[in-house]
Amino acid sequence: MAIKGVLRPGFAQVRVLDMKEAIIHYRDRIGLTVVSTEADGRVYLKAYDEFDRHSIILRECDEAGIDYMSFKVDNEESLNHYEEQIRKAGFDVTPVEAGEQPGVGRRIHFTAPTGHRFDLYVQMELSNNGPMTNNPDVSQLDPTGMKAIRFDHCLLYGRDLDGTQNLFVDILGFSVSEQVIDDDTGMVIATFLTCSNKAHDLALVRHDEDGKLHHVSFLVEDWSAIRDAADIMTRYDISRDIGPTRHGITRGQTIYFFDPSGNRNEVFAGGYHFYPDNPVRIWQASSVGKAIFYYERELNDRFMTVVT
């Protein structure tokens, strides 16, 4: 199936404890561009290879974490359809007026069973410094810092993983690419969902607290870019979790690290291409080490416990 309906992750609004430090991290280290700072204090940023106006919104708050993750939908008809279907499934859907974020049309938001708020929207203004479209050079803006190409995906933690997974699969048309299951009971511990040709656009891990953020991920070009990002992390004393390494799941190459408010970020490169006819790849929990950190072959303490 061609990509219809939900197209891709569009943006994430992240809570930070100190805006000044956060801007240095996301702009100067990860390499995003600040698009605007609005009267309510929220700061809008984008990666150099994104066409749309913004993809990361920072909101200063006394508690770190994620406010919401938003997906872009192909047209108003689809948005109306999803709105109706989500309501029919028993969830509250709240409309968000156009302009609540600069350059963004109307959105709908709903809270998934894992306690996370998600948005769907159709319209966002194009950036005036996104990728070129006429005899395009590889970039219009010179990539800086870790040279993040785009906001790629989120991994979120919460209790009712099955509920959120079902909502995304049954209503929003996502596919499951991989799962980690308990060897004995078959209970799904982690699930990787895609609405596209990527190995994952959203991942979920079962956890005893709802609404938690594990990481916000940024695409970088390749394994060399992962190395260069690692150099920057040491050079600027950025708190690193693990990596450079590879995930068994998605086969992407990765570093996990933390922003100055303790929100985990990832730089991610590679990963296989997914097609909707692919069988689900299953990992037994007894092999979860290799699934998550393919070279270490074991989880670190932080993977299951450290979230914001």
Binding site: L17, A64, G65, S239, D241, F258, D259, P260, S261, G262, N263, R264, D301, R302, T305, V306, V307, T308
Partner: peptide, 12 residues
């Protein structure tokens, strides 16, 4: 000591 984010966010 349990080491998490090192940045005041995770509480560990």
């Amino acid at each position: 000591i349990p080491v998490g984010c090192r940045k005041g966010g995770c509480g560990i």
